[in-house]
Every structure is written in C-alpha cells, then in structure tokens.
C-alpha cells in the first residue's frame, strides 16, 4: 500500500508494509483515561486542602503525608477508568481528536486543581 505524505511532496514515499488497520477506540480510551486521572489528582488535592477529614483519610503513609493518598487514589482512578473505557471502546473507531479534546479539558482541570494558588483558596481559615 502506497502512502503519500502531503507535507513533504519532494521526498519519495515509502511503501508501508500492509498491517491490519486497528480501531482507534483503545487509543482514545487511553487518552481520555489520562485526563480522568489528571482531573482526579486535581480533585483529591483540592478536597484535601478544603477538608481536614479528607486530608487525614488520604494520609496512607505518615512519612509521605496526604500526598500518598492523593497519588495512589489518582493512579487507581486512572487505571480503573482506563480499564472500563478500554473494554467499552476497544472495537469502536472513536476518533482520537475528540478524545484529545476531552482529555485536554480534564487535564486542565487537573492542572488547576493542583495549582497551589487555586487549591489554597479552599484552605480553612
């Protein structure tokens, strides 16, 4: 199968060996799950700042402090959401462009939630 690259017309195109075309669903699932994990980290970080109950609960390890719970929970949410999304999207042709848009919004939520100037707004007086 000959594949033409539109960005560099002067170069000779390679014959890309025929390989079975795979659905984009699993890729989209991985991308969205990353966003979910990022948003979860932002959420846990902000919740820990706002509530001492949550902060204490997230202290899975005394030497590490609440960061231990925040990161373990965020990674768990990421992996579980990835598994669920993968199973539900593995045979679909869900476009990665749409998945990336969703993920970018979720990653932005995660960045906001982990930004000190933001989450410290919720600290008790």
């Amino acid at each position: 199968m000959t594949v033409h690259d539109t960005t560099t017309p002067a170069a000779p195109a390679a014959e890309v060996p025929a390989v079975p075309d795979k659905p984009e669903g699993p890729i989209s699932a991985a991308i969205i799950a990353t966003g979910v994990g990022a948003a979860a980290l932002g959420l846990f970080t902000t919740l820990a700042e706002a509530s001492t109950t949550v902060k204490d609960w997230l202290q899975f390890s005394d030497p590490v402090g609440p960061l231990s719970g925040k990161t373990i929970m965020a990674v768990t949410v990421w992996l579980v959401s990835w598994a669920i999304l993968h199973l539900s999207m593995r045979r679909t042709r869900y476009e990665t462009g749409r998945a990336m848009t969703i993920a970018l919004v979720l990653i932005a939520v995660g960045v906001l939630g982990t930004f000190p100037t933001f989450f410290q707004l919720f600290a008790p007086e």
Partner: peptide, 20 residues
C-alpha cells in the same frame, strides 16, 4: 506544593504514549 502534585501527570501521559 506545585511540583509534588504536577509531576504525577507526567507518567500517566508517558504511559499513554507508550501504549499508543
């Protein structure tokens, strides 16, 4: 405070790239 949290986004993203 920012470093200890934001760093954790990187391995999740890098793992997604490796999977892709």
């Amino acid at each position: 405070e920012w470093k200890e949290h934001i760093a954790w986004l990187s391995p999740m993203l890098a793992t997604a790239v490796a999977f892709i």
